[in-house]
Amino acid sequence: MTRARVSLNLRFASHYRATSNTSSQSSLCFWLLLLLLHFSRSASSRATAAKVSAFIVFGDSTVDTGNNNFIPTIARANFPPYGRDFNGGVATGRFSNGRLVTDFISQAFGLPSTLPAYLDPSSTIDQLAKGVTFASGATGLDDLTAKFTSVIPLSQQLEYFEEYKARLEAAKGESVAKEIIAEAVYIFSIGTNDFILNYFTLPVRPVQYTPAEYVSYLVSLAEAAARDAYHLGARKFGLSGLPPFGCLPLSRTRNHREPGECNEEYNQLAMRFNAELQDTVTKLNGDLAGVLVVYIDIYSVLSDIVANPSDYGFENVAQGCCGTGLIETAVLCGLDEPLTCQDVDKYVFFDSAHPSEQLYRILADKILKSTAGAFL
């Protein structure tokens, strides 16, 4: 081999070693960077998941997953056609054909896809630690509303929450229980029955309050309930406004001035309630240390769906899927099971007062995009 060729080979080998070392260092840096990104993302995911430890719900039939099954009341939904599209076609006590809005939101938070009812004896404390509903169909903010149908008043739901907290401490230890309670999201979905089943049906409250005064009275009860939960350790709240309940099929049927049309008097009261509730949300955020309270807007979403049903895939907004769709709910819906519609996804309401699973799915998606991100 010539001297020039040897020199060339030596220079090539020297260049190869230098390049190889640089390449190895670059490769090592690359894999270290990937590793750091992996752990960073894992830690971020764990932190995000940890921000919502459980989903805890208070309210009425819109969020009752079966508590009424275990109390002596006719306000139940544990029979067909309720639950026809739930897992296995089981009527769980949910006033719908399938899951509720809170089930969908819980799943989106990485928590259970179906929330257990607190009074269900089959629910273990490990299940309840990730989410639970204390809600009761046909109840209201006003305890008189609950008495009318013998269901669980909001005041009792808060007592159950206090009991739940003690059960958590016994099972998980005080520090773990305290963390679960503090990092949980609390939803209050309640108020419609106070008007439909109480104020516009019973003679007591109209004598005591004008409609506007009754709205203010109800909002004061919602504020008191949130403060009670806060003193028990709750810190993250979602207070749901009222829907345009004048457009429920039941309300349309009872609208004697314009039969079949939305009852605008009812809707005006819903809007007034919502405006005052938003003021209360601002007040709570200012008064309570370490609290996060958000207003959940149901009214505008449902109003748009009622006005533009085809945009959301619906065909019928004025009738429920069950029975004639005009008056049936709870036990009356069960009596008319043979008349239940075939394609429930075309209906905004499953019975004359409660949304279909498809509407709940849409509402959950809207809430997650507009409000729920505040808790993450």
Rank of each mutant, 00 (worst) to 15 (best):
V331R: 07
Y266W: 06
N78W: 03
E223L: 01
S352G: 01
L168Q: 08
D120G: 00
A135F: 00
P211H: 06
A222Q: 08
G131N: 05
A47P: 00
N21Q: 12
E265H: 05
D287E: 14
S303E: 13
F195E: 00
A270W: 03
L288M: 08
T371W: 00
A270E: 07
L32C: 11
G290K: 07
F195Y: 05
A146V: 00
G246R: 06
T329D: 09
G59F: 09
M271R: 14
L339K: 13
D345L: 02
P121H: 05
Q127Y: 00
A224I: 01
V293F: 08
E179L: 09
Y118K: 03
V52H: 11
S24Y: 14
I125N: 00
Y299F: 13
N198E: 07
P81I: 05
M271A: 14
D304G: 12
R235T: 11
Y217A: 15
F350H: 02
T329H: 15
T133N: 07
Q25H: 07
G334Q: 12
A372N: 06
D126G: 01
T73S: 14
P203A: 07
T133E: 06
A129G: 02
L302T: 10
T280C: 03
C29P: 00
L269A: 02
L292Y: 03
A364W: 01
N274F: 02
A353K: 15
N97W: 02
F245T: 12
Q319E: 15
S220V: 05
L242F: 06
E265Y: 09
A135Y: 01
E357R: 10
D194A: 11
H38G: 13
F95D: 07
K172E: 05
G246N: 11
L363H: 03
G373V: 10
A364N: 02
V331G: 01
S23G: 06
P72K: 14
L119A: 05
N78Q: 04
H256K: 05
F30R: 11
N97E: 04
L154H: 10
V207P: 12
F200A: 09
A108N: 14
A129K: 07
L277R: 01
V185I: 12
S23I: 12
S240N: 12
A146G: 02
A54K: 08
P259T: 12
P206N: 04
Y214K: 07
